[in-house]
Each structure stands twice: as C-alpha cells, then as structure tokens.
C-alpha cells in the first residue's frame, strides 16, 4: 500500500497564544513494502506526522493519498483507514486496559466488526508473531514485564492486520535485550508478511540496521531523505540539528583521516567490518603504521 503526502501543513493550538507550526509543507512518498526510518529531534514533528497518516490528526492544508485515494475527501472511512494503517504509539503498554492479555489484543479486531471467533483467531496470530507464549494469554496485562507488555500492546495493533505498520519509538525505555527482540520481530514482519514499516526513532544505530530509506525531520519539515548511507554522509549537518550519525560513521571518517582507504559511507557495523578488513588485506597502509 503506497502513501503519498502533498504539501501538508499543520498548526498546533490554532487561534490561541501558544500557536506552533508543527508541520510545514511536507511532501513524501512511501512505497508499498518499504522499511522507512523516520528520524528527528524531540519536537521535530515526527509524531505529529505519523498521526496524520491514519487520520487521527487532520491537516490544516494539503492532502494525503493512501493507495491513490485522498483521505480527506468526503465519505472516506477513517475507521477503514485505521484498520489499514496500524499505529503503535510511544509507550503503547499504557493503553492496555482489559482483564487479560488475550481480550486486550481482541479489542482491535472486534472494533472492526469481526465475530468473537474471528477476532480470537487474529489475536492468536498476532500474539504469536510478537513471540508472546500462550501461558501469558490469560494473565492480566499489568502482571507482565515491561518488554512483554510492550509486545502485547504491539500485538493489539497487529491483530487488526494492517498493511502499513507505524511504530513510534517502540524501543524507548526497554533494556538492550528487549530492544533487540522488538526490532527483530518488526524486521521479521517486514520480511515475511511484506508489511510497509515506518519506524520512528532517534537512535541512528537502530534504524540504520533495518531501514531501506531514512527520512530526517527538523522543525516540522523534511531535512534529508535517502538510503542510510546517503543520509549519514551529511553527518556534520545532522549534528547541527541535534542528531548524530551512528558511531561507526565517525570511526570510519577518523580512519580515513589517518590515511586508511576505507568506505566512509558504511552505515552499519558489519558493512564497516567488511570495509576495514578489505583495506587491511590489500595491505595499503599509511606511512608509519
């Protein structure tokens, strides 16, 4: 499912003393099956942007086309849109409310008008894909650990079987093990179910590893977009807007400065490793090393 955003503008608190231009003139295209990393400093407008994509916030001007249809045209069903574009909020475990995990995951599919059996089927599938084992199904969501809660909440959105899955900082506040688990599950959904993924984060390391394309936002507008390699080549500009390239980018630039002919655009640790090994094997070393 493709999403096209045209000249989108949004102002917070219109008509009050606290007017803030949250989004200005956003133009973006997101293709079917892409894995997008959406990066930006706090307050750069990334959370506002993703809330537009499933119609929770309505733009002041501009248009959004989902599969070629303008979501702001009369008679467009927002409910259907929300089934197609699943949005997982920051700290999604804070929205758990049911008596047990399983019924909480059923909440979404039931709102879509599915019967209890169908909803249960989808909930089971969703819980399996986030890797939550069956013994937790009948437990209260408040008895789970942080990572488990988070996964249960993500399953709650997955159970609606969206074509596009948007996750707002899904790793925030988790320990390294929890982070890796969540990220791996998301990557698997992308690979196996061909979901279009939009991952919001400010950790470059995390997005660099998984995303096909990065979109960098600053003060309500899109600053850079492109493959991680392209975006990280602007590492000096990224620093100016309060972000940074992955540490490996800095290492590669340092090595290059010292005279090693390494690939400075390597975006991940494994790419960098290849490049460094290649450089060492060819034996071309700077003077005095």
């Amino acid at each position: 499912m493709s999403i096209k955003i045209e000249n989108l503008n949004y102002i917070y608190g219109k008509g009050t003393a606290y007017e803030i231009k949250a989004l200005s003139d956003i133009n973006l295209t997101i293709e079917d099956g892409e894995f997008i990393g959406l990066i930006g400093h706090t307050g750069s407008g990334k959370s506002t942007l993703i809330q537009h994509l499933n119609g929770l916030v309505k733009a002041d001007s501009g248009a959004i086309y989902v599969n070629g249809e303008n979501i702001y045209q009369d008679g467009y069903s927002m409910k259907k849109l929300r089934g197609k574009v699943g949005l997982v909020f920051q700290y999604p475990e804070h929205q758990l409310f049911e008596v047990d995990v399983f019924s909480d995951v059923c909440f979404g599919p039931k709102n879509q008008g599915l019967s209890t059996e169908e909803a249960a089927k989808k909930a089971r599938l969703a819980l399996q894909s986030v890797g939550l084992s069956e013994k937790y199904y009948k437990q209260s969501p408040f008895e789970l650990s942080g990572g488990q809660k988070r996964r249960a909440a993500i399953a709650g959105v997955l159970a609606m079987e969206p074509d596009v899955l948007i996750l707002d900082e899904p790793m925030a506040g988790l320990d390294p093990k929890g982070r890796d688990e969540i990220l791996d599950k998301i990557a698997r959904l992308h690979r196996e179910r061909h979901l279009t993924i939009i991952l919001v984060s400010h950790s470059m390391e995390d997005v660099a590893k998984y995303a096909d394309r990065l979109i960098v936002m600053n003060r309500g507008s899109v600053q850079f977009q492109g493959t991680p390699r392209e975006v990280f080549s602007h590492y000096k500009e990224l620093e100016k807007i309060g972000l940074s390239a992955p540490q490996i980018t800095y290492l590669m630039h340092e090595l290059k400065k010292k005279g090693f002919s390494v690939d400075v655009d390597a975006a991940t640790v494994s790419e960098a490793k290849e490049s460094i090994l290649k450089c060492l094997r060819t034996g071309k070393r700077p003077e005095g090393v």
Binding site: Q51, L56, R82, F89, F107
Partner: peptide
C-alpha cells in the same frame, strides 16, 4: 493520547 491510541485500534 490514550483516546488517540484506542482510536487507532478502531475504538469509536
């Protein structure tokens, strides 16, 4: 926030 999150799950 909670309202939006539940609306994203199809709540009405």
């Amino acid at each position: 926030k909670i309202m939006k999150a539940q609306m994203a799950r199809g709540a009405d």
